Amino acid sequence: MKRPALACLLLLAACSGQRTLTVCADPNNLPFSNRAGQGFENRIAQLIADSLGAKLDYVWWAQRRGYVRNTLGEKKCDLWPGVASGVEMVATTRPYYRSSYMFVTRADKPLAGLTLDDARLKTLKLGVQLIGDDAMNTPPSHALARRGLTTNVTGYMLYGDYSRPNPPAAIVEAVEKGDVDVGLVWGPLAGYFAKTSPVPLRLERVTPWLDDAQWPMVYEVSMGVRKDDPALLRRIEAALAQNRARIRATLGDYGVPLID
C-alpha cells in the first residue's frame, strides 16, 4: 500500500469517532457473564454498545471482594452491569430489572407454598448462599438465623470453587441431588439453572419479601459507572431505555424471574 493511501486510512480511523465501551465482567459466572460471551449481561452489554455506536471490549475479573476497586476504581473499564441499584461505591443507572430470592425445590416433593415462617422449614434440609463469615451474607441466611434455623442449614459459597464452570450453580445442583430439600437462591441463578436442570424443579418467591428493611428479598438491578463520569451514565440510561423490550426478552430467555 502506498504511503499516502495508508496515511489516509489511518486518518479516517482516527476521525471516525467510534469509542470503545469497556465492560468489567466475571469470566466464569453464568448466567451473568463468561469469557465466551454466553451470559445475559454479555448480551445486554452488546445492546448498549451498539446503541452507543461503540466497540465492546472487556476487562475480565473474578467478581469477588475487591472487584470494584480493581476494575472501575482503577479506571480499567467504563461499565459494570448487574450491580444492585443505589450502591454507594459507584454511580448507578435506573434499574433495568427487578428480581427476588427464590425457594428452589424438586417438583416431585410436596413442598409448594413455602414461606420463611413455614413450620416445615424446621425439619427440612435447607441450603443458602453465603458470601463470607461476617455480616455480608445473603438476605435468606440472615432471615433463617433470625428464626433460629441454623442447625439444619448448609451454606454454599457464592464464589464457590472457581476451578469449575459457574461455581454458584452448586446450590441448585444440591437440590437436584437431594443433598438439601430447599435452596434459597438469588432469582437469576435459580431461574437459569432450573431451566437447564435434568430434574424438574419448582421455583417460588421467598416471602415475606420485606422480612427486614436492611435485608429484603427483592432487589432492583442497575448498571454502574464511575462517579466522575455523569455523561456516560446518561448515555447508558438512554441506551437501556431504548432497548427495554429487547432486554426483557433476553432476561426471559435465561429464565430470570422478573418482579414488576
Rank of each mutant, 00 (worst) to 15 (best):
P230I: 01
R226Y: 06
V218L: 07
V225I: 02
W209C: 11
L240W: 02
I236F: 11
K227G: 06
A213L: 11
Q214C: 15
P208N: 10
L232W: 06
D228I: 14
P216N: 01
E204W: 02
V221E: 02
W209K: 14
R235L: 05
M217D: 06
W209T: 15
A239P: 04
K227S: 04
T207S: 03
R235C: 03
E204K: 03
Q214P: 15
L210P: 01
E237H: 10
E220R: 11
I236A: 08
I236K: 08
I236L: 13
P230R: 08
I236N: 09
Y219I: 05
K227I: 05
E204V: 03
Q214A: 15
D229F: 06
P216D: 00
V225F: 00
L232N: 05
R202A: 04
M217L: 12
S222C: 03
V206R: 07
L240M: 07
L233R: 13
A239R: 01
L232G: 09
R202L: 01
M217Y: 09
L233C: 10
S222H: 00
K227C: 05
Q242H: 00
A239H: 03
D229N: 13
T207I: 11
P216K: 03
A231G: 14
A241S: 13
T207R: 08
Y219W: 08
A241R: 09
Q242L: 05
E220W: 07
A239G: 01
R235K: 11
Q214I: 14
R202H: 01
L203E: 07
P216H: 00
E237I: 15
R235V: 07
R226N: 13
A213I: 09
Y219M: 05
P208D: 04
P230S: 05
S222K: 10
K227Y: 03
Y219V: 09
R235Y: 05
R226W: 12
K227V: 10
V221Q: 06
